[in-house]
Simulated scan of single mutants.
Amino acid sequence: MLNRILAMRDAGILGINARNRDFVMKHNPRSGYPLVDDKLQSKKLAQQAGIAVPELYAAIHTNHELQNIPAIIHQFPSCVIKPAHGSGGNGILVLTGKRKNRFTKANGLTLDEADVEFHASNILSGVFSLGSVPDTAMIEYRVQQDPVFEAICYQGVPDIRVLVYRGIPAMAMLRLPTRNSDGKANLHQGAIGVGIDIAGGKTTHAVQQNRQIDEHPDLGIELGGIEVPGWRTLLKLAAGCYELTGLGYLGVD
């Protein structure tokens, strides 16, 4: 095990402990944490800086406000409901539309109003939040994917993470939803991580649950060599988040 760790270090692979010690703790003042731990606060900051973010339809702060959810989701049946202080993709409910009086998920399953209210109630109770503290449920516009990604996404929308070091984009990856991840672009839940060449914006190598792969396991499509649209714009947007937060080591999704 020790030899493996040393070999990884010599190859330039940064372990999570070294990352936290030498980058997160060293370059990120704790005073800046609340700006990014609270998605509502992050959204307000981004809007003030002119950065595009999904429209916020509503924020549910109390159990009394849960009664407003049926009207909101009937008006916006394609939406995302998530905790303001969630982590690891937990607690995110994606609704893709409405069929009669039921609401469809990306995997085709349907929910009724009570199901959605119950999920939001769990968010308020802190089931998905950092430290299990009471939380806020955010109801947002469901982002639509670029046509380039339609062939390589399973029942969901991908996202892109750019790691910004002291204001300079250093690394990036594309996260693709799969059957295992229930249509969510969350690596912990089984999504695929695809490296992106930071200079050119093309995908390189892909990994799913610690295993290198060449094709999407559900779709059979090659994952390398795909050009990410608007790449230069994405890099500028990510770099701008350094000035927005003052955090020297930052992951921008």
Score class of each variant (00 low, 15 high):
Val94Arg: 03
Ser78Phe: 06
Ile139Trp: 03
Arg9Leu: 11
Gln48Glu: 15
Ala46Gln: 10
Gln212Tyr: 14
Ser87Thr: 10
Gly32Trp: 04
Lys98Arg: 15
Pro77Phe: 08
Asp159Ser: 09
Asp146Ile: 06
Leu250Cys: 12
His85Phe: 14
Glu222Thr: 13
Ile51Asp: 00
Ala199Asn: 11
Gly225Arg: 13
Val94Ile: 15
Gly200Leu: 09
Gly91Tyr: 08
Pro34Cys: 06
Thr110Leu: 10
Phe76Val: 01
Gly183Arg: 02
Lys105Ile: 07
Ala84Glu: 02
Leu45Met: 13
Ile213Phe: 04
Asp37Val: 09
Ile139Asp: 00
Ile73Arg: 04
Cys241Asn: 07
His188Ser: 12
Gly88Phe: 07
Gly156Leu: 01
Tyr154Ser: 01
Leu45Asp: 05
Tyr57Trp: 13
Gly190Phe: 03
Thr204Gly: 00
Asp253Leu: 06
Ala191Ile: 02
Ser78Asn: 12
Ala52Lys: 10
Gly91Asn: 07
Tyr57Val: 04
Val53Met: 14
Tyr33Asn: 14
Gly224Met: 11
Leu234Gly: 03
Asp22Cys: 07
Gly195Tyr: 03
Val116Ser: 01
Ile81Leu: 15
Arg19Phe: 14
Thr62Phe: 08
Ala120Trp: 00
Gly220Cys: 04
Ile213Asp: 00
Lys100Gly: 06
Leu45Tyr: 10
Met173His: 11
Asp10Tyr: 15
Asp38Leu: 05
Gly156Cys: 03
Met1Ala: 11
Leu56Phe: 03
Ser87Asn: 11
Val148Lys: 08
Ile73Gln: 06
Asp135Glu: 06
Ile69Arg: 08
Leu93Tyr: 10
Asp38Ser: 14
Val148Met: 14
Gln144Met: 08
Gly224Cys: 13
Ile192Gly: 01
Arg99His: 13
Val164Lys: 01
Phe118Tyr: 12
Met173Thr: 00
Trp231Ala: 07
Tyr154His: 12
Ala120Leu: 01
His216Asn: 02
Val133Ala: 13
Lys26Glu: 12
Val24Trp: 11
His27Trp: 15
Cys153Leu: 00
Val164Met: 06
Gln155Cys: 09
Asp253Phe: 05
Leu247His: 09
Leu111Lys: 08
Ile198Ala: 04
Asp38Val: 08
Phe128Pro: 01
Ile168Ala: 09
Arg175Met: 06
Ala71Cys: 08
Arg161Ile: 02
Asp112Trp: 03
Thr203Arg: 02
Arg4Gln: 14
Ile221Lys: 14
Val194His: 00
Met25Tyr: 13
Ile72Glu: 10
Arg166Gln: 15
Gln41Arg: 15
His64Arg: 15
